[in-house]
Design a protein around this nucleic acid. Structure first.
Lengths: 245, 245
DNA sequence: CGACATCTTGACTACAGTCAATACTAGTGG
DNA sequence: CCACTAGTATTGACTGTAGTCAAGATGTCG
C-alpha cells in the first residue's frame, strides 16, 4: 500500500485540514467553520471505485481532501470522455441539483469531505463567504474547461500528450519550488486509459505518443508512471500553446 | 436589414428589458436594479466585429441583450476553437479579472449591456441576489461546457452536426411551443465556418455532413441558412446522446 | 449586373483508430 | 523465493474518417 491517502485528516477538525485554505471553506471564519463541521462527514473510496453514478440521487456535495477523482461521461456504445479531473480542494456536486449529471470515480484512493446537501444549501444563503468562494471556483473550472475544449477540438495527439504532461508537471511543482531550468520529476496519477479518456484519444495512441516523446528526448520514463522532464521549455513548445500559459 | 437587433431596448430602463428575468439581474428587486442602472451603458456591435480581444484590459463586464456572440481561442498557427456561444442573457467577462482570456466576437449584430467592472465588483459584495444568479449561470455554463467536451472528444462528424442542429432547434422552439411530432424550422445563426469552429471540424467537413443529412432526409434546407427538421426524434437519434437530453 | 462572400463537391492524403500479438509490472499464493 | 495471473502498456499492420488542396457553384449586396 504505497499510496495510502487514507489516514490523513478525519480527526483534528477543519482547522488542520490540508485543504482548509483552498476548498469552498477557504474564506470561512471559525464560527462559520463550526456550522460546516456540524453537517460534514468523511468518506474514503478505493481506487477505481465510483463515488457517484450519473443519474443517481445525490444527497450530498463534497470536497476532495486527498487523492484524485474524475468526472466522466459515457455514451451508450461505451465511448467515454473525462470532463473533469478532481484534485484535492475541488468540489463535487452542485447545490440545488437533485440528480447527478456525471459519473464521479476515484482514480487513486480518495478521501472526500461530504456535506449533506439540504443543510449545505441553506447555509449557502447566509454564509456569503462560501458562496463567494464557490463562484470563484466555478469560474476557474470554466476557464480550465475552455482550455480543455481547445485541446480536444484542435490539438494533435502529440500536442495533447505534451499538454497533459505540462499540466501535471505544473501542479506537481506548485509546492516544491522549481529552480527554473532544472529537470522536473513527477508521478502520473493516471493510467494510459484514463489519459486517453482525458484527451479524447485511444490508449494505443497515448502509448505511441509517449514513446515518441521519449524517443525524441523530451521526457524520460522510470517504470510506467514516473516521468522526468529534462527541459520543461522544450516540452512546453510541443503543446501548441503560446508561451507562458 | 432583415435581422435588425439594434433598436431593441436602449431606452425604457431595466423594467422592460427583454432579458430582465434571465440575465445576472434576474433576481434583483427594483431598488437593486436602480443601482445597476447607474453603472450600465449599452453598446451595439456589428456582425463580425470583435467585442474584446484576448489579452485586452477589460474595464467592463456585460450581458448580451440581443444577437449572438462567440468566445473563441486561437492558436499561433491560426487553428481556432469556439469555447462559448453567447446568446441573449449570457454574461461576458469575469469579476475580478483584469485581462480578457478569450476573444469575444459578434456573430450577428449584437447589443450588450455593459457594467463598469470596478463598481460591479463592489455591488456584487452587497447584492447577494446578483452573486447568486451569477453562480447559477456559471454552473449552467460549466454543465454545457462538459457536454461540449464529450462532443469534441468523442463524437463523429455526423454526430457533431446533428448535435449542433438539435441544440439550435431546441432553443428556437423554447419560446414558440412545439407541438410534438410536428416539423421544426429555424435559421442557423452561424456560418459554416463558425459551425466548424464550434465543432472542431473543417468547414468542408461541416458542409459535407450537412449535405449527407439532407440526402438522408433528416433535414431540408431553404437557402443555406434556413433549416427544416421533419422529424426531430430522427435527428436526435443521430446525435449519439441518450434519449431525452 | 457584377463582385465578393460563402458554400459545395471532388480527388487525394494523413493522422489517429482498430484489431491483434506480445511485453512488462505488480500483486497473490504455493 | 519464485511461479502464476491479471491488469497495464507497447508495438505492429492495416483501415477509415476527417483534413487538405483545388475547382466550381451558389448566394448576397452594392
Amino acid at each position: 500500500m504505497p499510496n495510502t491517502a487514507v489516514d490523513i485528516p478525519i480527526s483534528g477538525g477543519c482547522a488542520n485540514c490540508p485543504i482548509r485554505h483552498k476548498a469552498v471553506c477557504a474564506r470561512c471564519e471559525p464560527d462559520e467553520l463550526a456550522r460546516l463541521e456540524d453537517i460534514k462527514y468523511y468518506r474514503t473510496v478505493a481506487a477505481g471505485q465510483n463515488i457517484v453514478w450519473a443519474g443517481d440521487r445525490m444527497d450530498f456535495v463534497a470536497s476532495v481532501v486527498a487523492g484524485v477523482a474524475s468526472l466522466t461521461q459515457t455514451m451508450e456504445d461505451g465511448r467515454r470522455q473525462m470532463v473533469g479531473l478532481l484534485l484535492p480542494s475541488d468540489f463535487i456536486g452542485r447545490p440545488g441539483r437533485e440528480l447527478a449529471r456525471f459519473d464521479v470515480t476515484a482514480v487513486s484512493e480518495t478521501v472526500i469531505c461530504c456535506f449533506r446537501r439540504k443543510p449545505f444549501e441553506k447555509l449557502l444563503v447566509d454564509m456569503p463567504h462560501v458562496q463567494e468562494r464557490l463562484l470563484e471556483m466555478a469560474l476557474d473550472e470554466l476557464d480550465a474547461a475552455r482550455d480543455w475544449m481547445l485541446l480536444l477540438g484542435r490539438k494533435t495527439a502529440r500536442e495533447k500528450i505534451a499538454s497533459l504532461l505540462s499540466i501535471i508537471a505544473k501542479r506537481a511543482t506548485l509546492e516544491t519550488k522549481p529552480l527554473p531550468g532544472a529537470p522536473i520529476e513527477f508521478d502520473l496519477p493516471l493510467t494510459r486509459e484514463a489519459m486517453s479518456d482525458y484527451l479524447g484519444l485511444t490508449l494505443e495512441t497515448v502509448s505511441r505518443q509517449i514513446s515518441a516523446l521519449k524517443r525524441d528526448g523530451l521526457i524520460k520514463l522510470e517504470g510506467n508512471r514516473h516521468v522526468i522532464v529534462p527541459d520543461m521549455k522544450r516540452l512546453q513548445a510541443e503543446t501548441g500553446d503560446d508561451e507562458f500559459m
